[in-house]
């Protein structure tokens, strides 16, 4: 029995070989070792079975609900954008300043 037959690759290397491409040493070993080639075949069967599970179609009523999203005018997005960026707008800053001055004036005139 030669060394390729006795030195079995690790299980990790065999799974890697089953899923992707193994290196030359492992491939040479598999050709001669029925135990390892069976192992690889079993892993390949499992992965083939997983890949073969049928995808389901999106239910029709869900599809129309989702496509209807595009008719929305993004109200929440507008509010969020406004809240995040209003202070970058000089007009709104001016308006807020004037409002604050008027409020201060009103409060002070009530107390004087």
């Amino acid at each position: 029995m030669n060394s390729t037959m006795t030195n079995h690759p690790t299980e990790e290397a065999l799974v890697e070989c089953a899923l992707n491409v193994g290196d030359g040493k492992i491939l040479a070993h598999i050709e001669q070792c029925s135990q390892c080639s069976d192992y690889i075949e079993e892993v390949r069967t499992v992965s083939r079975d997983i890949a073969a599970i049928d995808d389901e179609p999106v239910p029709e009523r869900l599809a129309s609900k989702i496509l209807a999203i595009a008719h929305c005018k993004r109200p929440e997005n507008f509010v969020m954008t406004f809240l995040q960026t209003w202070y970058n707008n000089p007009f709104l800053i001016g308006l807020a300043t004037v409002g604050a001055i008027l409020l201060l004036y009103a409060v002070l005139s009530l107390h004087m």
């Binding site: 299980e11 990790e12 799974v15 890697e16 899923l19 079993e42 892993v43 069967t45 499992v46 992965s47």
Partner: peptide, 17 residues
């Protein structure tokens, strides 16, 4: 990711056997 994929497939193979 490689290790997780390996462990998962190993476990599935053993379960199916």
């Amino acid at each position: 990711v490689r290790v997780r994929a390996f462990r998962t497939l190993k476990r599935l193979r053993e379960t199916l056997i």
